[in-house]
Nucleic acid binder design. Structure first.
Length: 369
DNA sequence: GTATGCTTTCGGC
DNA sequence: TTACGGCCGAAAGCATAC
């Protein structure tokens, strides 16, 4: 059993960089890729901005109108998201990355983990050269830059990739892991959210280094065996999570913004059913069945609310989906007095249809041995 | 007590 | 002065099971 070498490849400011590639004259201007909600002209939020725009404080998630204010008087370009175009580019780049990996795991549209232990023979100089080759291949074949983190596992590779970007390459060798992680805030560890951060702070652990000095037993007392052990391991850079193909998504959802805020069930369902149709057609395309249905409401004050229901048995039925969505919105409206600004629907607990049938067949047909 | 499953909320991109 | 998406998986809280 050899020590692993894992890479995390992150495509830089992905949507905006795709737009720069399509129209290179944008390159020296602020480029702001926006999700327009359609409620009013320019209502919506910024999805991604290039680094020229970021210098002006234009970051992901801010309102489009705020971005325009920050860029007032500047020769900036605002574009709507073109997800299909980005998806095409992503697919081609992921193919390149996959060809350089022993094992490959795509995470979202612009990130992937690669296990490169075998082909680098566990050698970090080899890994550095491979990473440089990958960056060069992506640049010459698809004209996009990326940032790569290299380390002994996914946890370290992911954090390393964040150290230098855009166009970064950061290696953290096993003997460097401790000094690399020590000064970082505990919040950077996967599994540490706001509440856990608070709890750890109370215990006196703000940084990963401070967490590492805690007795495992103490952590187990506070967080339970599973999480306590996990936190201890993470704090000293131990992470055994394998790089694994992610074949299917865990959930499929659609959300959209209403013309105006409302509590009118008919208006809400009219929109929600359209979303159901779209989610359902994606389900069929992928040959998936669902076991849970959720609805989502963003209120006028932008607070989020949801309701969900899980069935005993999986189904792919559209009418069941819509009926459940209706029940959940009725439930939500009776329990809450907020007005809906955006409404969404989601299916989760997904499974491949054929595999389900295989399981049933196996169970009923071939289990008598 | 700890694990597991379900529901709701949070937060990254 | 305010302004505000869409999608995903992770986190957190709770109930129940072992």
């Amino acid at each position: 059993m050899q020590a692993r070498i894992v890479m995390l490849v992150d495509l830089d400011y992905f949507y905006a960089q795709c737009e720069e590639r399509r129209n290179p004259s944008l390159k020296d201007k602020p480029v702001v890729v926006c999700v327009y909600s359609g409620r009013t002209e320019d209502s919506g939020a910024v999805s991604t901005a290039n680094y020229v725009a970021r210098k002006y404080g234009v970051n992901s998630g801010i309102p489009i109108l705020l971005a325009k204010k920050k860029l007032k008087g500047i020769d900036a370009v605002f574009l709507p998201v073109d997800k299909e175009f980005y998806r095409e580019i992503s697919d081609k780049i992921m193919e390149i990355l996959r060809s350089h990996a022993d094992r490959f795991e795509q995470v979202g549209i612009d990130e992937a983990y690669m296990d490169v232990t075998q082909r680098t023979k566990g050698n970090y100089q080899g890994a550095k050269e491979l990473a440089a080759t990958i960056k060069n291949d992506v640049l010459t074949q698809q004209q996009l830059s990326c940032s790569i983190g290299v380390g002994p596992n996914k946890l370290v590779a992911k954090i390393a990739a964040d150290i230098q970007k855009p166009d970064g390459l950061t290696l953290v060798k096993p003997e460097e892991v401790e000094s690399f992680l020590s000064p970082l805030h505990v919040r950077r560890l996967v599994g540490v959210g706001k509440k856990t951060e608070k709890k750890l702070e109370t215990l006196g652990a703000r940084t990963v280094g401070q967490l590492a000095r805690f007795d495992v037993q103490k952590l187990i007392e506070v967080f339970g065996r599973k999480m306590g052990t996990y936190f201890h391991n993470a704090s000293v850079g131990i992470d055994e999570e394998p790089v694994q193909e992610r074949s299917e998504p865990e959930s499929l959802s659609r959300i959209s913004t209403l013309k105006e805020d409302t509590r009118d069930l008919a208006v809400i369902l009219n929109e929600a059913y359209k979303l159901c149709n779209e989610v359902h057609s994606k389900l069929l395309q992928r040959g998936l069945v669902y076991r849970s249905v959720s609805i989502y409401v963003v209120a006028g004050d932008l607070s989020g609310h949801s309701r969900s229901k899980t069935f005993e048995n999986p189904t792919s039925d559209l009418e069941t989906f819509k009926k459940t969505v209706k029940e959940l919105f009725e439930k939500f409206l009776s329990e809450s007095d907020v007005e809906a600004r955006r409404v969404g629907v989601k299916v989760s607990n997904l499974n491949k249809k054929e595999e389900l049938q295989k399981q049933i067949t196996n169970f009923f047909g071939f289990s008598n041995h």
